[in-house]
């Protein structure tokens, strides 16, 4: 009885206090809701702006002949970026040719032969560290190993530098894809008398194929836009490439070289090249996104 009378007088104001606090808390919560929504929108403004600029400044000047003409000399009109387009395709192909087999084999080793072992942990850790390697250092490494020793910049050197960057992406994506293949498929295959290699090649890899392809496409898209590793390995030329031991132009380096020159034609060409490059990269990304969603 005594206790109740003691509590009673303070209880009413405290309840009012509480409801005021509650109102303040819900106002605060609503305010923060708006703030994070606004910040998310704000973060998408640059994306819209980049795409708008590339379309408005790049697509307007686009001519089909740009795809097969050579870059113009400084101050001249016309021209195109045919050699850069070929160069980028060559560079990315060389990179993929080197990195896809090694990357897929590494991932197979991680998931099929040494799952959960200590060596798998070491290899995965190295792949992750390699994926954080600044792209320019891949170029520096290839410069030291290949360019400085042969005294020539070449498309081969540039392609290998891109391969180094693609390798960890492919390893990690393939590993994830293989891990998603249900264990019973492998067990069934082994129980039917297939050996490990047959199981991997005929059961596990086909089951994971679409996810692996997604990973490869993302790696290709990233490599196509990379500039830093090829700027002093593949260098740049204004001519068609004759052999794999020659330097080559590429879309990314062309954009860089033409971005801050005082000639309007070249600057416009940098924008148009950006438009084409972004188209390649975004289409690759969107297609791989669709493939990935379908495989889920």
């Amino acid at each position: 009885m005594n206790a109740a009378t003691k509590i009673h007088p303070t209880a009413a104001p405290r309840a009012m206090d509480l409801s005021r606090k509650l109102r303040w808390r819900s106002i605060f919560s609503r305010g923060m809701d708006g703030l994070v929504a606004l910040m998310t929108l704000a973060a998408l403004v640059p994306l819209v702006s980049v795409i708008y600029m590339v379309i408005s400044k790049g697509a307007g000047n686009f001519r089909w002949s740009m795809l097969w003409q050579l870059p113009p000399a400084a101050g001249m009109d016309g021209g195109g970026f045919g050699n850069a387009l070929v160069g980028t395709l060559l560079l990315v192909s060389i990179g993929a040719l080197v990195s896809v087999p090694i990357g897929v084999l590494t991932a197979i080793f991680l998931t099929e032969y040494s799952l959960g072992s200590k060596s798998a942990r070491i290899i995965r850790f190295c792949a992750k560290i390699l994926s954080g390697l600044p792209s320019i250092l891949a170029g520096v490494f290839i410069f030291g190993v290949l360019v400085a020793t042969t005294h020539s910049f070449s498309v081969l050197a540039g392609g290998l530098a891109l391969g180094i960057l693609m390798l960890p992406i492919i390893i990690l994506a393939t590993e994830e894809a293989l891990l998603r293949v249900p264990r019973f498929l492998r067990e069934a295959s082994l129980a039917l008398g297939a050996n490990r290699t047959q199981t991997v090649l005929h059961i596990t890899l086909p089951a994971a194929a679409s996810t692996i392809i997604t990973g490869v496409m993302l790696a290709v898209a990233r490599a196509a836009g990379e500039t830093a590793p090829i700027i002093f390995t593949a260098l740049f030329t204004s001519y068609w490439i004759g052999s794999l031991r020659e330097p080559t132009a590429s879309m990314a380096v062309l954009i860089y070289n033409f971005s801050s020159v005082p000639y309007d034609n070249l600057v416009n060409m940098a924008w148009t090249a950006s438009f084409v490059l972004i188209l390649i990269v975004l289409v690759t990304n969107i297609v791989s996104h669709v493939v990935a969603n379908r495989s889920k």
């Binding site: 196509a224 836009g225 972004i278």
Partner: peptide, 8 residues
């Protein structure tokens, strides 16, 4: 946002 090349 991560897919747009650095040079662009």
């Amino acid at each position: 946002l991560a897919a747009i090349p650095s040079v662009i």
